[in-house]
Design a protein around this nucleic acid. Sequence first.
DNA 1: ATTTTGGTAGTACGATGGTACTACCAAAGT
DNA 2: ACTTTGGTAGTACCATCGTACTACCAAAAT
Lengths: 202, 202
Amino acid sequence: MPKLADHGERRAQIAEALLRIAGSKGLHAVTMRSVAAEAGFAVAVVQYYFESKEKLLLFALQHLAQRMGERVRERVGEAGSGASPLRVVETILGQAVPADEESRIFHLVYTSYAVLSVTDPALAAQPFLAAPNLMQTFIADRLREARDTGEIAAGLDPESEAAVLLTMSAGLGTSVLLGQRTAEQAMDILRYHLTRIAASEH
Amino acid sequence: MPKLADHGERRAQIAEALLRIAGSKGLHAVTMRSVAAEAGFAVAVVQYYFESKEKLLLFALQHLAQRMGERVRERVGEAGSGASPLRVVETILGQAVPADEESRIFHLVYTSYAVLSVTDPALAAQPFLAAPNLMQTFIADRLREARDTGEIAAGLDPESEAAVLLTMSAGLGTSVLLGQRTAEQAMDILRYHLTRIAASEH
DNA sequence: ATTTTGGTAGTACGATGGTACTACCAAAGT
DNA sequence: ACTTTGGTAGTACCATCGTACTACCAAAAT
C-alpha cells in the first residue's frame, strides 16, 4: 500500500470544502468540479472518496448536523447542570439563530436541503423531522420542570408552548438568514417571549 | 396585425404553468422547456413573452404574491369590518399555513426563491422583506387596538408580539410544508398562542 | 527487482440547460 | 394583391453538469 491517506480525514476535508461553497455561493453552486477545486483536489479524487454527488451531499449534511449537535450540547453543558430549565431552553433556542459563520452555513444549507426534499423524493425528509421532534419533546420536558418549580405559570401547556417556541425560533433563524433581522434583534424577540412566559404567573 | 393575442393573458398562462411545475416538481425543475411544454407552447413563445428565464421567474413570483395578497385581503374582508382585532390577526396569520394547493405552492415557491436570494445577488431580496415588514406593522397596530379595548393584556408589547406571531406563523408554514405537521395542527398551535395572549390579563 | 495496489490526474461522453437564429404562417394595412 | 408585422415553431450553439474511463505514480509486498 502506498501513501497512507486517512479516508475519514479526506472525506471531512472534501465535505468542508462543499460547505464553504454552499455557504458562500449557495447549494446550487455545489458541483463536483467546484468542490474539487475548493478542496484542492482533482475531480476524480472526490469521486474516489464518494460514490456519487448525492452521497457526498448527504455526508456533508450529516457532518454539519453532527458538529452543530455537538455545539448545542456543549453550550448547554456550559450553562451548567445547575442552570434553570428556562435558561436551558433559551440556550438551545438561541442556537437556532445564525449568529456566526458556521451557524449561518448550517441553517442555509439545511433550509436549502429541506426545501428540496419537499419535491424531491430521492432526498428522504426523515432526517429533518427526527431532530426537531426530539427537540420539541426535550423542550416540553424542560417546560414541565419549569412549571413544577413555579418558574412559569401553571396554566401553560408545555407541549404547545414547546411547539410555539420551536417554530418561532425556526422562523427567527430564517428571517436572520434573509437579512430581515440581525441576530441580536432575533435574540431580543426570543428573550422577550421567554420573559413573557416567565412573568405570566397569577 | 395578425392574431390578436392578449399579452397579459399569455403571460399569466405561462406564469401559471411555471407555478404548476414549481409546486409539483420543485423550483429546480422549472426550465424554459418544461414550462413551455406545460403551457402547451413552443419554447420560443415563452422567450417571446419573456426576455429571459430570470424575468419569467420574477414575474411568476409577483403574479403569485399578488394573488395571495388579494386572497388575504378577501379573507380579512369576509371576517367583516366589525371583527375584533385579534380575529383579524388570526385570519391573516392563518394564511401563512399552507392549507390548500395554491397556498402550498405559494409557500414552497416563495421559500425556494427566498433561500436562493440569500446567496444569489441577482435575485434581489427586497421583495421578500417589504411584505413581511408591512405585515408586522399592520399586526402591531391591530394588537395596539386590542390592547386599548382590553382584548389583550396591557403588559404586552405590540411590536414584539407582532414579531413573535409573524415568525411563529412563518415557522409553522414551513413545518407544514415539510410534512412535519398537518395544517390543522399548525392552526391549533396558532390558536393556542392567541388564546394565551388573550387570557393573560391581570 | 518487479509486481501489486492505493491514490491522483486528465480527458471524454452523453444529457441538459438558456438562448439565438431562421423559417413560417396568417391577419391587418396599403 | 401584396407587403408588413405579430405570433409560433424547429433547430442549433455553447456552456455546464455528473460520471466513466484510462493513464500514471509511488510505496508496500513478494
